[in-house]
């Protein structure tokens, strides 16, 4: 990885101004960024901005942009709120060593198609806080991006949400062929599909079909699963064809819905 000039700012404002005035590249976990052959003209290291935290603010959970996957996976606070959702979504990604480096902010900012985390956060109804203070629905941000430059500061998660995650992979440590997360927010269902192989999208029609019933019938779940597969655009890549993804998708969604409904 080539970084021609390196700065480690001590405030978000300083980092943001470097991005705004000098087109600097923010350095998160750098695990994916380093795979890019393009040199970084000015790298702004976010490591000293105290963005590595998971905290309960009373009405929501805040996750700092430099929090690692390993921290999400082993957090007692997240386990208390969301059960095994985060370990199930993240713990199969390569190994503990790499998950100790991958950052939440880097994943969200990159809006990567293969991301397991973005699918999970979208289903939970997360919001992303972009410095200096823009709060956006994370699923919308994944779909539409943000005006450049933007700097991911933290993620906001609602409390009292029950979620489940499903995925299919060729081998354990590979990128997913598909990943799915669903959640019951207390008043509505959310269904997110990622690794299509494109980035995560919500299945709005399926969510509407599930309605506001916390215990939808088996028939409703089956119909919503089929609807999600119908409305979700998927493609072909080296891992799976369009047809394969279309066939597998309703199965994963049905399993996730049944898990949350109980």
């Amino acid at each position: 990885m080539e970084i021609k000039e390196y700065v480690r700012p001590s405030s978000l404002e300083e980092a943001y101004q470097l991005m705004r005035t000098r087109h600097a590249t923010p350095l998160g976990g750098c695990v994916w960024l380093r795979m890019n052959a393009k040199p970084v003209a000015l790298g702004v290291d976010l490591a000293s901005l105290d963005l590595d935290y998971i905290r309960d603010t009373g009405d929501m959970i805040e996750i700092g942009a430099m929090t690692t996957y390993r921290s999400l996976e082993t957090s007692n606070l997240l386990a208390k709120q969301y059960g095994k959702l985060f370990p199930e979504a993240l713990s199969h990604i390569v190994g503990v060593q790499l998950r100790a480096t991958i950052s939440v902010g880097g994943t969200v900012a990159g809006r990567y198609g293969f991301s397991d985390l973005n699918t999970t956060l979208s289903a939970l109804g997360a919001k992303v806080v972009l410095y200096p203070g823009t709060i956006t629905d994370l699923a919308t941000f994944i779909a539409e991006g943000a005006e450049s430059p933007f700097l991911v500061e933290k993620i906001l998660l609602p409390k009292g949400v029950r979620g489940a995650y499903q995925q299919i992979r060729i081998t354990r440590n590979d990128f997913p062929i598909l990943n799915v997360a669903v959640a019951w927010t207390g008043s509505a269902w959310r269904v997110a599909v990622g690794s299509r192989p494109a980035a995560t999208r919500l299945c709005h029609a399926a969510m509407q079909m599930l309605g506001s019933d916390p215990c939808p019938s088996d028939q409703t779940i089956e119909a919503a699963s089929m609807q999600a597969a119908e409305e979700t655009s998927v493609g072909s890549d080296i891992r799976a064809s369009h047809d394969y993804r279309k066939a597998v998708l309703p199965v994963l969604i049905r399993r996730a819905l049944l898990e949350v409904r109980g």
Binding site: V31, R34, D45, R70, V94, Q97, L98, A100, T101, N173
Partner: peptide
């Protein structure tokens, strides 16, 4: 590329991949 684990070292006692760590 961060996949094999051969380059593992401990950073403050926790395992990381030194090939993927600045």
């Amino acid at each position: 590329t961060g996949n094999c684990g051969v380059c593992t070292v401990l950073l403050d006692g926790k395992p990381i991949r030194s090939c993927s760590f600045l």
